[in-house]
Design a binder for these strands. Structure first.
Lengths: 138, 138
DNA sequence: CTATTACTTTAGAATCATTATAAACTATTA
DNA sequence: TAATAGTTTATAATGATTCTAAAGTAATAG
């Protein structure tokens, strides 16, 4: 199956109509080797570079990223930076977050072990475990 | 030493002039048994309840919380909620974060063990280790 | 195929959290 | 007590995100 069809299937299997906009964004985000960290504004700048003919509105980018997140294709990263950061690496892993530059870096799952997880409070269940190592210039 | 003087000293030792506003906020935040989690808007609502005579402006509350954070009297908590959460418990510990209600709960330091911490990227040093367990209704 | 329906995109307005501004005020210091 | 340095304040400005409702497009029924 070619990449175009893979994207279409990915969208369909998440009950998302494969529109031109969603394909373009999905193609950009998911057809790559390395994981990609971004904010919506950053993604918007890249997707809508001046020389691009078919621009995608910022609202659509927000909608699409939100849909991809809900479908489990993107992981939202915890920060204290008052904007949303996303990661194309959805497998369980952790992050360095540079509080001076706002840069993120993945930490391999096996490089950190979180042991003795406590029980969730009554009536709740744990949905995700995220370790953030805040770093700065040494 | 009475509590009023304690607060004054805490402020002075952080090179913050003990103004009426800072005392009031510090008194509210730090003279308590249990830790307190809040956003600035929540704190503003509490500090400026209708029946309060001396109101404190929202800008001052932001300034003060920022000063207290920089002085190390408050810990900022990582979430994916696009607003800043603070914790009066500044000792090393972790959190449950309910993504449906935005409620936070402390996790005792010893209830989670993070082992095998990786080295920080070259030229950087680890400033903080935070584990957030995202929870939701089960 | 075509018409209908349901979903999606869009520009722009609205909202929410936060930061900036600059004038009035207050604690500290000389 | 006067000068100064730091602080507070209302308000404006900013930045990120969500809302709105009209126009467009994909899916589906006939």
């Amino acid at each position: 199956m070619n990449q175009k069809n893979k994207i279409t299937n990915k969208l369909r299997s998440s009950k998302l109509r494969p529109t031109k906009q969603r394909r373009k964004i999905a193609d950009f985000l998911f057809n790559r080797e390395k994981t990609f960290h971004f904010t919506v504004e950053e993604l918007n700048k890249i997707i809508n570079k001046k020389d691009n003919l078919q621009k995608i509105s910022l609202a659509t980018i927000y909608n699409t990223i939100d849909a991809f997140k809900k479908a489990g294709h993107l992981k939202e990263i915890l920060t204290n930076n008052n904007k949303s950061y996303y990661d194309t690496n959805i497998s369980s892993h952790h992050h360095f977050f540079d509080i001076e530059t706002n840069e993120l870096e993945d930490i391999n799952y096996n490089d950190i072990k979180v042991v003795n997880l406590p029980h969730a409070p009554k009536g709740k269940k744990i949905q995700d475990v995220e370790v953030t190592l805040t770093v700065k210039k040494s």
